[in-house]
Amino acid sequence: MSAGADLTTPALLLSAGLFAIGVVGVFLRRNVITVFMCVELMLNAVNLAFIAFSRWRGTLDGQVLVFFVLTVAAAEAAVGLAIIIAAQRNRDTLDVDSFNLLKW
């Protein structure tokens, strides 16, 4: 189901836009899980870019890479959420600003 060639550019622009929204979201949200979700959003934008380029170039490497990104995202989500649970148990809050021990 190959469609018009001019879908590539809009798709890429969509990817850029989603990525930007994700970036802004990382800074604007206070709940750490929400921040994580914005990171997932960024990953998805990247996936979209891969797919678009894969189609544009006519090779399937992009598809395979998206496959791997997906897998890694899953693993990362699992571990990240586990960390968040552990941190919440420690600090009793999910506020990003309260995790401020990363200084000397």
Binding site: V23, V26, F27, F99, N100, L102, K103
Partner: peptide, 14 residues
């Protein structure tokens, strides 16, 4: 630059 705030660090990365 060394507030410990993760957000600030992320901002710097960005």
């Amino acid at each position: 630059a060394q507030t410990g705030l993760v957000r600030a660090y992320a901002l710097l990365i960005l």
